[in-house]
Amino acid sequence: MTDADRHPEDQDDLLAAEYVLGVLSRDDWRAARDRAQVDGGFAARVQEWENRLSGLNDAFPVLPAPDLLPQIEARLFPVQPVRRRRFAWPWLAGAAVAASVTLAVLVWPIAPTPMPVQLVGETVAFNANYDGAVLEFALDVAAAGQGRDYQLWAIGDDGVPRSLGLLRGPVTRVATDLAPGVTLAVSLEPEGGAPGALPTGPVLATGVLPVVN
């Protein structure tokens, strides 16, 4: 069957799969990306393939989160717009495309998978897992110190920090209804947390809440 013989919906489905797998040429990939931003039906197909192929990410190491500390501090003192970065899917070998698509359809289930979250600063990093409802921090960093506490914040599009609580003990679980892409930050505060609604201590680390597939 040639491309001309394919039904338009089949062509769109194949294009969405190739876009997610990263096997398109640079110009075709950009064209597909731009189409997904304005074509709801095509965007839904892209999302379906991202869910199907999410298991392929297990073959790649977890990359450190981008250093957002200068941007966070600029928004807090004073408030400034936060620039967001868009992450591209890893480029996969062209020879494995057909086998990968077949396995994704027949083998991998579409189910929520906890995602690693890393808040990174100049001298410290906070690691957590996120299942779409709960952030679970394994506090393997040095203690905050006598009379001090680590405090977790969420910063939305309005640039206003909202406290999510204190990070204490070997494991801290934080329930949250935040949307993916929200910026998270950890500040060093007096014991018991910031006295007001805003952080008062230095921002130690920042990261971005991921999408849970």
Rank of each mutant, 00 (worst) to 15 (best):
103 L>H: 13
77 F>Y: 04
190 P>E: 01
114 P>D: 00
2 T>G: 14
124 V>I: 15
181 G>H: 04
156 G>K: 00
188 L>S: 11
162 R>K: 09
91 W>T: 11
68 L>M: 10
59 A>V: 06
38 V>S: 14
153 W>R: 00
125 A>H: 09
90 P>G: 10
196 G>Y: 01
42 F>I: 03
213 N>I: 09
49 W>D: 01
13 D>Y: 06
41 G>P: 09
159 G>S: 05
97 V>M: 10
210 P>G: 11
89 W>V: 02
40 G>K: 14
98 A>T: 14
101 V>L: 13
189 E>R: 04
102 T>N: 13
103 L>Q: 15
160 V>Q: 03
211 V>P: 03
176 T>G: 02
60 F>M: 05
33 R>I: 10
116 P>A: 15
21 L>A: 01
193 G>N: 02
69 L>N: 04
117 V>R: 09
74 A>T: 00
13 D>R: 01
2 T>I: 02
53 L>I: 11
172 T>W: 02
1 M>D: 00
9 E>G: 04
124 V>P: 06
147 G>M: 06
133 A>W: 08
67 D>T: 10
194 A>R: 11
129 N>Q: 15
51 N>S: 14
53 L>M: 12
210 P>E: 05
180 P>T: 13
76 L>G: 08
124 V>H: 05
147 G>R: 04
20 V>W: 05
102 T>R: 15
194 A>M: 01
188 L>A: 07
19 Y>D: 00
27 D>L: 12
16 A>M: 03
148 R>F: 03
125 A>C: 05
110 I>D: 13
126 F>A: 06
55 G>V: 04
146 Q>K: 11
10 D>H: 04
87 F>S: 08
72 I>K: 03
23 V>C: 07
101 V>S: 06
189 E>G: 09
106 L>P: 11
178 L>W: 02
172 T>C: 10
39 D>H: 08
168 R>S: 06
164 L>W: 08
202 P>Q: 15
12 D>V: 02
43 A>W: 09
208 V>K: 12
156 G>S: 09
76 L>Y: 07
116 P>V: 10
111 A>W: 02
122 E>N: 11
132 G>W: 06
67 D>C: 05
6 R>V: 03
35 R>G: 12
117 V>P: 09
194 A>V: 04
206 T>Y: 08
89 W>Y: 02
213 N>F: 11
8 P>F: 14
201 G>D: 03
193 G>R: 03
194 A>F: 08
116 P>C: 14
140 D>V: 13
86 R>Q: 14
128 A>F: 08
47 Q>T: 13
81 P>W: 04
202 P>K: 10
152 L>Q: 03
104 A>W: 01
